[in-house]
Nucleic acid binder design. Structure first.
Length: 458
DNA sequence: AAAAAAT
């Protein structure tokens, strides 16, 4: 049986035609696996890379099984941030409205009274953040007696909120025979065992779980001293000239400074972080989506789940605190087969973090430097990479000897890595040229600025 | 370690 149409995996006519209106005609691999399992009523634990269509993988079967005649919530979706909850809500409305399904969001920041009013509209689908959902349950305004499906999106993150007590509380409030769906690009063994505690005979879906980042993502890093970071960021943004980029900053105090300095040099930047008021948060994100802001200076509030059109570049102004955060931040780009670039700035003392991520994630990082207004390999900028002890082992092209090549996959991990590190320069250049031609053919649809601004390889 | 999620 073919799985490349929605009807063939059980999606009904109405939803299929709604999808077609938005140009979605083929289920993605994770959708093809997940949708039938959910339609069967099974609990699901799904792990698949960022930007592979997890949201629709659960929304479609949920929308299909909601009975518009029942005027109570039949499905509840939990998300880790207000922004992500709103994005999921809009998707629900886009595909569910014509089916007569009423969907509402219940999130923090907004007046609770207004949300109680929303509940009087009798939504059949509710999307929210854990704190607010718990609160509405406590005041008995949100009724769970008809909730048949409970989704925890970005499950590893959501369980961290409120020390996981909130979410467990919400799960307990649901019917005992509710269907439970957990999804994320990063599912730790702890979350997996938690899933097995809460679920009955879950369908476990893992699309190439050993590869957590998208294959269409390129990973680059620059070394800059702490005091040079702002200027390096400015030059990177200028040189790549991306119409849109997210700059991730680790702490809220630094966000305002980066925002101000980018604006000072004439770039249009605005800040997005959790402590800002809700109106500002949604306005900034809307402007960024529309393209009227070039740079979004964000905390990790923007790291998860957000799907932003034409976002080809993310920059880690600070290295993320662990490889999971790296996966989610970089996963804002390179989605659905499109090309993306993730650039990380590290101080010399932080370079080991890049090596750590490369190893843990099985990905390759390219080091680049700024030289004469261009992005070049470190060698061309006169940076002697072999002189300094403790630096990552690289080939002479500046590529980090990562842990993930084909040989490593076949088992001889360390030797495979050794060999990758010893590729002679001419060999590496020849294969790079080949790769370039291959990539150019494959990325016809890549944004123009990204195609044109590839770092020179000579 | 940091930010998020509640007021």
């Amino acid at each position: 049986m073919t799985i490349n149409t929605f009807p063939s995996i059980g999606v009904n006519e109405a939803l299929t035609s709604n999808l077609a209106e938005y140009g979605i005609t083929e289920p993605s691999p994770v959708q093809a696996e997940t949708i039938p399992a959910i339609l069967e009523g099974r609990d699901v634990l799904a792990q698949s890379q960022t930007g592979t269509g997890k949201t629709l993988a659960y929304l479609l079967p949920i929308l299909q099984r909601i009975d518009p005649a029942i005027k109570s919530p039949q499905a509840l979706i939990l998300a880790p941030t207000q922004e992500l909850a709103m994005q999921i809500l809009r998707e629900s409305q886009r595909y569910g409205e014509s089916l007569g399904i009423q969907a509402q969001s219940l999130i923090g920041g907004a007046a609770i009274g207004r949300q109680i009013e929303k509940l009087k509209l009798h939504p059949q689908l509710v999307v929210g953040t854990p704190g607010r959902i718990k609160e509405l349950l406590a005041v008995k305004k949100l009724k769970m007696h008809e909730v048949k499906t409970l989704v925890v999106d970005e499950v590893d993150q959501v369980f961290q909120l409120g020390g996981s007590g909130d979410v467990e509380h919400i799960i307990r409030a649901a019917l005992r025979d509710r269907q439970l769906l957990f999804l994320s690009a990063t599912v730790s063994p702890e979350i997996r065992s938690l899933a097995y505690r809460e679920m009955k005979d879950p369908a476990e879906i893992g699309i190439e779980p050993e590869q957590r980042t998208s294959k269409t993502l390129e990973h680059v890093y620059f070394i800059a001293e702490e005091r040079e970071k702002i200027d390096t960021l400015r030059r990177i943004v200028r040189t790549y000239n991306a119409p849109k980029a997210i700059v991730f900053v680790n702490n809220t105090q630094d966000i305002g400074e980066v925002e101000a300095k980018m604006n000072f040099v004439g770039l249009h930047a605005q800040a997005l972080y959790g402590d800002a008021d809700k109106t500002t948060r949604s306005l900034v994100l809307r402007r960024f989506r529309e393209g009227s802001i070039q740079l979004l200076i964000a905390s990790d509030v923007a790291a998860r789940g957000l799907d932003i059109e034409d976002l080809g570049l993310i920059i880690n102004y600070d290295p993320p605190i662990d490889s999971e955060h790296y996966v989610h931040r970089s996963g804002r780009t390179g989605r659905m087969g499109r090309k993306g670039l993730a650039i990380s700035l590290v101080t010399p003392r932080e370079e080991f973090i890049i090596r750590k991520f490369a190893k843990e994630l099985g990905i390759e990082f390219q080091q680049r430097a700024l030289y004469g207004g261009r992005i070049v390999e470190p060698r061309e900028a006169g940076i002697a990479r072999t002189s300094s002890a403790g630096r990552p082992r690289t080939d002479r092209g500046g590529r980090l000897a990562g842990s993930h090549d084909n040989k490593a996959k076949n088992g001889s991990t360390s030797r495979g890595t050794e060999e990758a590190g010893r590729v002679s320069r001419s060999e590496s250049k020849a294969s790079e040229r080949k790769l370039d031609r291959h990539r150019d053919r494959k990325n016809k649809g890549a944004p123009k600025w990204l195609k044109d601004k590839q770092p020179p390889r000579s």
